[in-house]
């Protein structure tokens, strides 16, 4: 049976993610030691909390180099919400902090027009812009809805890495990003009903 890891980034509330994997019969374990990465078939980078504390936890657990090695081998990585933001080069959340730099871009605060609330909390329809090879997002159709909860968004240098976007407060925000075997979604598949769970199924079938 294939085995999947959920990276421990400290503040993360991992319950919902672990529950959804269990419901899908996906063998998932929480990983916080470098040697555990080698045995995995796929890795989830979950996310609630702040950018800096997420990076600090990975650093403290000596995980930064091992994650880079993991990605270089070509195995799939899926970042969720803050986990997607950690994939980028840098963030401006409470200061300026370096990220994992797998996908070039910056994490910036949402400045919404017309009194749209921030954070963006709720269900948004993701407009799919392109399909990529070996992506867990290729089965998303139109009339979808996914659950978002974020105050910051991913501003990518190369827009061809944006697979899907939402329209929020007068701007287009990246909702799904992919470059090679590194994938991210700003929404929470584990809280997004059946359409969200389907993404996990497709991820483990890559």
């Amino acid at each position: 049976m294939r085995s999947y890891g959920v990276l421990d980034i400290g503040s993360g509330n991992l319950y919902s993610l672990m529950r959804s994997l269990k419901q899908l019969d996906i063998r998932g374990t929480i990983v916080n030691r470098p040697e555990e990465l080698k045995k995995l078939d796929g890795l989830f980078l979950p996310g609630v909390g702040a950018f800096k504390s997420g990076m600090d936890t990975l650093n403290k657990n000596h995980m930064l180099e091992p994650i880079i090695e993991y990605v270089q081998v070509g195995k799939p990585l899926l970042g969720i919400c803050l986990g997607m933001q950690l994939l980028l080069s840098e963030s401006f959340e409470f200061g300026n902090h370096k990220g994992l730099n797998f996908i070039k871009g910056k994490v910036k605060p949402i400045i919404a027009k017309d009194k749209w609330p921030v954070p963006n909390i709720g269900w948004c329809e993701v407009k799919i812009l392109r399909k990529k090879n070996n992506s867990p997002f290729n089965n998303i159709t139109c009339n979808n809805d996914f659950y978002f909860i974020h105050s910051y968004f991913c501003d990518l240098d190369d827009h061809t890495n944006i697979v899907g976007e939402i329209r929020y407060g007068g701007q287009n925000l990246a909702a799904i990003i992919s470059e090679g075997n590194v994938h991210g979604c700003q929404f929470h598949p584990e809280l997004s009903d059946n359409l969200g769970f389907k993404i996990f199924e497709d991820f483990v079938n890559l």
Binding site: N13, A50, I121, S151
Partner: peptide, 8 residues
Amino acid sequence: AHAFGSQS
């Protein structure tokens, strides 16, 4: 908010 993020 510091421990779990404002979103929680």
